Structure formats: C-alpha cells, structure tokens
Computed example of a mutant assay.
Amino acid sequence: MIDGQPAEAAPSPSRSVLQHEWQAFWLAVGFLTRIPMLARIDYSQKLMNQCSMYFPVVGLLLGALYAGLFALLSLAWSPLVCVLLVLCFHLFITGAFHEDGLADSVDALGGGYTVEKRLEIMKDSRIGTYGTVALVMALGLKAALLLDMETIWLALLVAPAISRVTPLLLMAFMPYVTDPDKSKSKPVAETFSRQRLLTSCACTALISLVFSIWLPGLWLSALTAVLMVALLWGWYLQRQLGGYTGDALGASVVFCELVLLMFL
C-alpha cells in the first residue's frame, strides 16, 4: 500500500510486450494507409522504427480489401472495369504513398547529375516528366498484368504483402542518405533490427507457402521477385545515391509488385 491506498499491480512483461507490438502494428497501418488507427499509440521513434516489421502484414490487410472489393464489383462489371476501380481504391486508401516515391525517385535519378542534385529533386513535391511517365507506365502495366491472371483476386490479395518485404531488406543492408531533419521516413529507416527483419520475412514466406496451394509457384515467384528487386534496385541506388531514401523504398514496393505479377 502507498499512503493508505492499494498499489496498482505492474503489468506483466508478456502483457507489456503484446501491448507494444499491438501499437507497433497500428502505427504501421497509420504510416502506410489512411485506415484509422484503432489503438492508442505511445509514439516514439523507437516504436516507429519497430513498426516496419508489420509492413507485409499491413500489405496483407490491404490485399484482403482489394480482393474483397474486386469480388464484389465483379457481380456487376467486367474484369477491366473492376481492376481499374480497385486501383483507384488502392491509390485512395494508401494516399498513393509508394507511387509518390516512385515518381520522385525516377525524377531525381533521371534528372540529377550529382548526388546533391538528385536528393534536391527528390525532395521537390512537384512531379516532372520522368515521374509522370513512370507512374502512367507502372499503373498501366499493373492493370494489364492483373487482367492476364486467371485468379485476379488472389493476385490482389498476396502481391501487396510480398512486395512490402523489399524495403525492409534495403533498410537492413544499406545506409540512409537524405537530410534526417526533413525526412518523414527517418524514424522508420534508422537502425532497423535484423531480428525483426527475419520475423517479417518468415511471416511473408508462410503467406507465400499457404497461398501456393491455390497459386502454384507463388513461393518461388515471390522469392525471386523480392531478391531481384532488392539486389538490382539496391545496387543502382548505391551507385547513384550511396544508399537509399524514403522515396526509393516506396519505389521498391511498386517494382517488386510488378515483377511478382510478371512472374505469376
């Protein structure tokens, strides 16, 4: 007792860990989407960094929304109309987060001749010719690849989860090279834990193996796409920038999703 009052029992370590991870999950949801966070967040840079482990899980949540919406729309419209409407919903629910990164990255790498100039262009909110062309081609190719799939809903379900492993690999093995005081991605990118990377990769591998029952070859396509994009895009970023930026991480998600759909 304290001053005549019964002392409150301290939360158990296991409960504290679960509460911490629950907050990390919802912080990842809030970071990657416009979905309202259904948990009180004790925000910190450490929690922001740790939430990145849940990027593939958030991707699976988004995939479930896309697949469900496609199934519902298919009751009334053709596959082409349904895919385009799902892409519109995707751009809305994510705030075109990764597509913005793609446009900024391509603008910077296409129009800058020094590292300093590339980083300056990447921070500019305006979109240029390179970025516009990249966006149009990426969205058009994504729609075409989905329409070529026999099970469109399944591709919509798994691709967002698998593609969000790629930025985790880049964060784990490359340096961060933008102005830390002006970057919204700094808390996520700093000191990314290899242990949490392994956990996230294991979870994504399990997703790939489970859904390989309905989509043969998914696990091999997923492994190839993730490693190919991480290695090639990472190598190119290392040469052009000396590391990665938040925009480059977003671009890696778009690239990985396209490569995965091409293999499937």
Rank of each mutant, 00 (worst) to 15 (best):
151 T>I: 10
110 G>M: 00
33 T>S: 05
85 L>D: 04
29 V>Y: 00
105 S>Q: 03
162 I>E: 03
23 Q>T: 03
262 M>L: 15
256 C>S: 14
102 L>I: 03
51 C>G: 05
258 L>Y: 11
45 Q>F: 13
99 E>N: 11
155 A>P: 15
7 A>M: 06
32 L>P: 13
117 K>Q: 15
200 S>K: 06
105 S>I: 08
139 L>E: 15
187 P>Y: 01
106 V>C: 13
168 L>H: 00
188 V>E: 07
167 P>N: 04
212 S>I: 05
166 T>A: 03
172 A>T: 02
100 D>G: 02
142 K>T: 00
138 A>P: 12
82 C>Q: 01
19 Q>T: 09
185 S>R: 08
146 L>A: 07
137 M>K: 06
18 L>Y: 06
149 M>C: 14
128 G>C: 13
85 L>E: 03
61 L>P: 00
161 A>G: 07
214 W>P: 15
58 V>G: 07
228 M>L: 13
26 W>Y: 02
1 M>C: 07
187 P>I: 00
113 Y>N: 14
132 T>M: 12
177 V>Q: 08
74 S>R: 10
59 G>Q: 02
150 E>T: 13
7 A>R: 14
212 S>M: 13
79 P>Y: 02
169 L>A: 10
124 D>G: 03
115 V>Q: 11
41 I>V: 01
184 K>C: 15
84 L>G: 12
240 Q>T: 04
35 I>Q: 01
158 V>D: 04
141 L>H: 05
117 K>E: 15
161 A>H: 12
169 L>R: 06
67 A>K: 02
30 G>Y: 08
102 L>M: 11
210 V>I: 08
253 V>H: 08
20 H>V: 11
189 A>Y: 14
33 T>N: 03
180 P>V: 09
229 V>E: 00
199 T>P: 15
231 L>M: 15
43 Y>T: 05
69 L>F: 07
153 W>R: 12
22 W>V: 09
186 K>C: 13
3 D>I: 11
142 K>V: 02
256 C>H: 11
39 A>S: 07
179 D>N: 13
28 A>C: 06
250 G>S: 04
128 G>H: 04
